[in-house]
Design a protein around this nucleic acid. Structure first.
Length: 493
DNA sequence: GCATACTTAAACAACA
DNA sequence: ATGTTGTTTAAGTATG
């Protein structure tokens, strides 16, 4: 799949649809677009008379609505251009499948029996019917042109953003005395995996006393793999082994184990996850718990949990049978989820004690990480953590409201933090979908009514998490968000 | 290699 | 009869 994406990009570049140096070509575009911007753009451009579908697409423009069939937004972008511009072989606008597409046995605009043309979703039984549909419905007309133009801009904006972030990464690594192998070209992908290996090589130079990279030790796999960074052609081949597995179960336990701040991650990237078909790098259990704790009463019915999933994550708007089953399975399996009979019927609550129990104690399962944090000398798990940090950093650029985490005095306290989300949850994602810091960690946890046995774990976590919360919520001048500054607070989580 | 955690799939029962 | 909810088992994978 990554190869497909890579080739799509290469095709685009060959066709001149995607500038090889996007930043140079589009320097004037100062602001990278967030998903809402893109949606707005869709609305504007697709305001062609009679383009209801385009409007529809605008609603669902998500960089990824099509990823269910292994076609990321970018393959879609690429193919979307083809009818317009790329008829190199004199063909009609009927997309001529590239070799890789043929190899994949699919069409970027076709998947799961549906036309994946933005806003279309017409059902086509087979490829032949789809091709016919494509010729009929998506011919070279004003609407298609507009849609292609929009798609092009989407791609361009993402390229710009990517370039910016790559530059930032470069600067960060330079600052951290990690020799980047080569000065990266502007459109060099944000390659966290390779960053990780880079860190491996140079890990011994990780500056002592430098704030430790945040979040999970391992990569927040999914966003990296499926997210916007895939647009980079060169990033694709260097993804770590685990990334290369493509479809199938994605391991996210690291996010649990290594204190991934699910709350802050979600808060920062809520718009991204809402719009992009990217699997959140959290376990079902973490997500369920977060959903429940986020609710006003700290309790949700199963259906409400479902709704939370679909509301918060574009990813969970499809394959509903699968993940809903998984949700139910998790609810039943984990003792930390307690079913309570309520006036509403049965609701699910979280037993924080149990939730903590099911994980490795304190600084969850990564004594190495703790050691690293203390000594600043170890790097075994630090590499992965740093990858995660970079990943998170890159993720949040896509949409997140500016966040700051000024250097925290809690850096040592955090070593006592139990783990991730409980203590870290400060920026609460409101149940209405908006992100806002509303709940203190104490509230977050203690407000769970069902089981009110405070434990030493909770007690341990509480004060620290409060600190973490404080540091994590301070507003920050947008683009100058410094990883260095960001690390400590995330670390707390 | 093993234990553990996680995901996915599936069967089944109870219930509305 | 059907769909939802909840439980349980099993298999496969990743990780430490």
């Amino acid at each position: 799949m990554q190869q497909l994406q890579q080739q799509h990009i290469l095709n685009l570049q060959r066709q001149g649809l995607v500038p090889l140096q996007p930043t140079a070509a589009m320097q004037s575009l100062q602001q990278a677009m967030c998903p809402s911007d893109l949606q707005q753009l869709w609305k504007e451009v697709s305001g062609v008379p009679g383009s209801d579908e385009a409007l529809k697409q605008a609603e669902g423009l998500d960089l990824s609505t099509n990823s269910s069939n292994s076609t990321s937004a970018f393959p879609k972008a690429a193919s979307a251009h083809m009818p317009l511009h790329s008829l190199p072989n004199g063909q009609s606008h009927t997309p001529k499948r590239d070799s890789h597409e043929e190899h994949a046995g699919s069409h970027p605009l076709y998947g799961h029996g549906e036309c994946k043309w933005p806003g279309c979703e017409a059902l086509c039984e087979d490829m032949g019917q789809f091709i016919k549909h494509l010729n009929n419905e998506h011919a070279l007309d004003d609407r298609s042109t507009a849609q292609c133009r929009v798609q092009m801009q989407v791609v361009q904006q993402l390229e710009i953003q990517l370039a910016k972030e790559s530059e930032r990464l470069q600067a960060m690594m330079t600052h951290l005395h990690m020799r980047p192998s080569e000065p990266k070209p502007f459109n060099q992908p944000l390659n966290l995996a390779s960053s990780g290996s880079l860190l491996k090589r140079d890990s011994d130079v990780y500056p002592e006393g430098l704030p430790h990279p945040p979040t999970s030790a391992a990569t927040p796999i999914t966003p990296l793999r499926q997210g916007p960074s895939v647009i980079s052609s060169s990033s694709l081949h260097t993804h770590s082994h685990s990334h290369a597995h493509g479809v199938g179960p994605i391991r996210r336990r690291n996010s649990d184990k290594y204190c991934t701040p699910i709350a802050s991650e979600l808060a920062q990237n809520c718009e991204f996850y809402k719009n992009a078909d990217v699997r959140p790098p959290f376990t079902y259990a973490s997500l369920i718990r977060h959903a429940i704790l986020e609710s006003p009463d700290r309790q949700l019915t199963l259906n409400e949990i479902y709704n939370w999933f679909t509301r918060k994550f574009a990813y969970f708007r499809r394959n509903t049978a699968t993940w809903k089953n998984a949700v139910r399975h998790n609810l039943s399996l984990h003792k930390c989820f307690v079913r309570v009979e309520n006036v509403k019927g049965a609701v699910w609550t979280v037993d924080e004690v149990e939730y903590q129990k099911r994980r490795p104690p304190k600084m969850t399962g990564s004594p190495t990480l703790v050691k690293n944090m203390i000594s600043g000398l170890g790097f075994g798990s630090l590499n992965a953590s740093y990858q995660a940090a970079l990943a998170e950093s890159s993720l949040s650029l896509l949409n997140s409201p500016p966040l700051v985490t000024p250097p925290s005095a809690a850096s040592l306290n955090m070593l006592h933090v139990g783990h991730d989300d409980v203590s870290s949850t400060v920026e609460q994602v409101n149940s209405n979908g908006s992100c806002s810091p509303t709940l203190s960690p104490q509230q977050y946890s203690h407000a769970v009514h069902v089981k009110e046995e405070p434990t030493e774990i909770e007690e341990d976590c509480r004060p620290v998490s409060l600190l973490a919360g404080i540091t994590h919520n301070l507003p920050l001048p947008s683009d100058d968000r410094d990883l260095e500054d960001d690390l400590p607070a995330d670390d707390l989580e």
